[in-house]
Design a protein around this nucleic acid. Structure first.
Lengths: 108, 108
DNA sequence: GCTTACCGTAAGTCATGACTTACGCAAAAG
DNA sequence: CTTTTGCGTAAGTCATGACTTACGGTAAGC
C-alpha cells in the first residue's frame, strides 16, 4: 500500500519540535512565512525548509497571494494520520483484551 | 501543560521507521523481544533500545514473564495521540472554513 | 552445581537532518 | 526604472540518534 508512505511522511514531518511549533501557530489560522518566522526562534530560511517538508507530507497547503505565500493546515492530510491512529488504537485494544483473557485462563 | 511533553515523546517515538515496524508487528498481538528481533532487519540490542524509547513514551507496555519480556501496544498511550490529532483536525477545519469565507467575500 | 537461552546496558561509529549565511528571483512601492 | 519586500534555494557546519559489537546479569534446562 502506497498509503503507508503518506503516513510515514506525515509522522516524520511532525517529529521535529520546530515543526510542531509551526503547527501550533497555524492552529490560530493561515499565516505568511514572515509572520511564522517572527514567532519562532529560528531563521526565516529554516522556516521555509520546514514548510516545504510539511507541505510535501500533505499536512500544509500553500496559497501564493501577491508577493507572499500564505500557509495553512491541510485537513485532508491530518485526517490520514487520524484514521491511522484510530485503527492502531483498535488493534491495541484487541491485543489488550486477548492478553486479559489469557491471564484469566492461567489464573484459575 | 505537561501533556504536550507526552505528545512530543509519543510522536518522536513513532518517527523512526524501525519503530513503526515494531508497532506493526505488535498489532498482531504481544510478542517477546527475540520474536520481534527475528522479524526485523536490525540486531536484538537495537530492538531493545527502541522498545525502551517507546515504553518511556507510553506507547508500549512490558510484562516480564519468566525469562522473557513480553511487549504489547498500550491503548492509553495511543489514545493521547488520537485526541491530539482530533483537536488539531478540528482547528484545521475551522481555519479552512474561515479562509473559504474570506475568499467568498473578496470574490464578489 | 554448570550450561544455555533471553535480555538490558555500555561504548563507539556513522549517517541523517536541522540550522546558518549567502545568493537569486518575482511582486509591490516609490 | 530603481528600490524594497517577501520567499525559496544552495552550500556548508554541527549535533542528534540509530546502529553495531562486547559485556554482565537473571531465569530455565540438564
Amino acid at each position: 500500500m502506497t498509503n503507508a508512505d503518506a503516513i510515514s511522511a506525515a509522522i516524520g514531518a511532525l517529529a521535529d519540535p520546530t515543526r510542531r511549533q509551526i503547527v501550533n501557530l497555524l492552529r490560530a489560522g493561515p499565516m505568511s512565512v514572515g509572520e511564522l518566522a517572527a514567532g519562532l526562534p529560528v531563521s526565516r530560511p529554516a522556516v521555509s525548509q520546514h514548510l516545504a517538508v510539511m507541505t510535501a507530507a500533505g499536512l500544509l497547503s500553500a496559497a501564493p497571494q501577491g508577493n507572499r505565500r500564505i500557509y495553512a493546515l491541510d485537513p485532508s492530510g491530518i485526517d490520514g494520520l487520524r484514521t491511522y491512529l484510530d485503527t492502531l488504537w483498535d488493534d491495541a485494544l484487541a491485543g489488550f483484551a486477548a492478553a486479559a483473557r489469557a491471564q484469566e485462563r492461567t489464573e484459575r
